Computed example of a mutant assay.
Amino acid sequence: MTIKVVRGNPTPEELAAALAVVRARAAAASAEPSGAPAPRDSWSDPSRIAAHSVPRPGPVSWSRTYWPA
């Protein structure tokens, strides 16, 4: 890995701090599992909202949509 200073004149301490940040970010990125999805929280699971199937309307249900039962 090569780091090049494009502008300015940083001190050796500033370069060391910037390199430490870059290395820490690279180590954190390589430590994360790349292919495994994160576990889903039960609150964000859409199947909890529709846990049971909605009953299908019958052949004459269209006539009962307006009139109270």
Rank of each mutant, 00 (worst) to 15 (best):
T2M: 09
M1L: 08
R25E: 10
A50G: 14
A51I: 09
R40K: 09
T11Q: 02
A31M: 12
R56A: 11
R64H: 05
E32Y: 04
G58P: 02
M1E: 10
P57Q: 07
S61T: 15
A69N: 06
T11S: 09
W67H: 10
S44Q: 12
A31R: 09
V5L: 01
S47L: 12
A50F: 13
A29P: 00
R48M: 10
A36N: 00
A27S: 06
G8N: 06
R25K: 08
E32R: 12
P12G: 01
A20E: 12
A17H: 06
A27C: 00
A31S: 14
S30D: 12
S63H: 03
A69E: 08
A26N: 09
P10I: 08
P33A: 10
S44N: 13
S30T: 02
R56W: 03
R7I: 08
P55W: 04
E14Q: 13
A31H: 02
R64L: 12
R48N: 12
W43C: 11
A50D: 14
E14P: 03
D45K: 08
A27Q: 05
A24Y: 05
Y66T: 06
P39M: 07
P59I: 11
V22P: 00
A38V: 09
I3T: 13
N9W: 07
A18I: 12
L19V: 12
S47K: 08
P55D: 05
T65I: 11
R56K: 04
N9E: 11
A16I: 02
A17V: 06
V21K: 07
A16T: 06
T2F: 04
T65C: 08
P59M: 04
P37E: 02
V54L: 12
T11G: 01
P10F: 03
S53E: 14
P12C: 03
S42R: 10
K4H: 08
V60T: 13
A17C: 04
I49T: 14
P12S: 10
A31C: 07
A18C: 06
V54G: 01
A28N: 15
W67D: 12
P33F: 00
A28W: 03
Y66M: 11
A28I: 07
P37R: 04
P57E: 09
R25I: 07
H52E: 15
A17Q: 03
P33H: 05
W43S: 15
G8W: 03
Y66N: 09
I3K: 06
N9V: 05
Y66G: 06
A20F: 07
S42H: 08
A20H: 02
E13V: 05
S44D: 15
L15Y: 01
S44H: 14
L19W: 01
S44C: 13
R25F: 10
R23E: 08
S44L: 14
S63T: 06
A18F: 03
A51S: 05
E13Y: 01
T2C: 06
R64M: 07
R23C: 01
